[in-house]
Simulated assay, not measured.
Amino acid sequence: MKLGVFTVLFSDKSLEDMLDHVASKGIEAVELGTGGYPGDAHCKVDELLADEKAREDFLEKISSRGLIISALSCHANPLHPQKHISKEADELFEKTVKLASLLGVPVVNTFSGCPGDHEDAKHPNWPVAAWPNDFQEILKWQWEEKIIPYWKEKAAFAEKHNIKIGLELHGGFSVHTPGNLLRLREACGPAIGANLDPSHMWWQGIDPVESIKILGREGAIHHFHAKDTIIDQGNVNRNGLVDMTPYTDMKDRAWYFRTVGFGHDTKVWADMISALRLYGYDYVVSIEHEDGLMSIDEGFTKAVENLKPVMVKESVGEMWWA
């Protein structure tokens, strides 16, 4: 396994300065944003698609520092009911898949998206209650008319380019649990998998180790994020886990993100890494920093320090004792 970082946290640095910085910390892989919510500070998709020499230079800058690219990421909402928003996200996704194929990067990460509740809707509608039955009708329409048709087409497109799609299981988007990821995968094929982020499991009440087992049995983990979450039970009692309190109001939120080791201890992270290996994941653990209590560099550095001791670097090979 390799320790990586989602480089959006260093968007203020040039590509070269960012690569030097993360390599100096012992990072082995970079996950690069191509647009959408992550931005494109370190990976200009149009420029790289248009110029083979630019791609060669780009890859050389990365490989010369002993790094690989774990994934290209274009998180956005390709199912947004406002067509200009969904069209832009869709075009970015297809460009990112094409670029990943040309660069030899095996995974493209994104969100599933979330549609509206009818053809003329203006905003996404994320049903979170099984009753009243209106919500079930909305959910059925979304999956049958929007989610499955769209991702069936994109899975075929990705397979054509030998790319795996890592959907981040994130609240506010239609695919946000292991169960509905597997539902989509069954409908659309094995190109669909998870960019599994335990921080979004915790706040939904899902045990990340169990989510690894559920998805790992199906070979459905394509990429893995390392980010922690703390649950503030007092605020859960007041607001519930589906909490609309702004992220900036940390004292009043039911949960908020922390850097690795500051929401859950080393044993919990060791259990997750071990479960990943047990179920066949031997790829990159990519640090994502969204900790409102630490600077970027402090949070990133502590995440590296806390993950290094629990990373499994060598497979056992033959069990000599068995």
Rank of each mutant, 00 (worst) to 15 (best):
M18S: 10
G234E: 14
L184Y: 11
I148A: 10
A54N: 06
G36L: 11
W143T: 02
S211N: 10
R55N: 09
A71F: 03
L167H: 09
F111T: 12
G263Y: 11
R183M: 14
T259D: 09
L32V: 13
V105A: 13
L19A: 05
K83D: 12
A155M: 01
D46E: 15
P208N: 08
T96M: 10
S64R: 13
S101E: 04
F58H: 09
A129K: 12
K308V: 04
G33V: 12
N195D: 09
L184E: 09
N306A: 07
I165Y: 02
F262Y: 15
Q142E: 08
V260A: 06
A270K: 15
F10V: 11
P132S: 04
K61M: 09
A187V: 00
V105I: 14
A76W: 08
S14F: 02
D51A: 00
N195M: 13
I148V: 15
G104A: 02
L9E: 14
I296F: 04
N180F: 06
D265I: 04
L15T: 11
N109G: 13
K164Q: 04
L182H: 12
I147W: 02
N195K: 11
A187I: 02
N239R: 01
C188H: 01
V312Y: 09
S24L: 00
A129R: 13
V8W: 06
S63G: 02
E60P: 00
H222R: 13
L278I: 08
D249N: 00
V236G: 11
F111R: 03
P149W: 11
G36S: 01
A155H: 00
L15G: 05
H42T: 05
V285G: 10
N237I: 01
A158K: 10
A187K: 15
K160Q: 11
R238A: 07
K53F: 05
A158G: 04
E290S: 00
M272T: 00
K13W: 10
T177Y: 01
G35W: 01
P132L: 04
K308G: 01
H84P: 00
R185N: 03
F6W: 15
K164V: 03
G234N: 12
H200M: 05
V105F: 08
S101Y: 03
V107S: 08
W202Y: 15
G219T: 05
E159N: 12
S11G: 07
E168M: 11
E31G: 14
G234K: 09
I287N: 09
E16N: 05
Y279N: 03
K95W: 02
G172M: 07
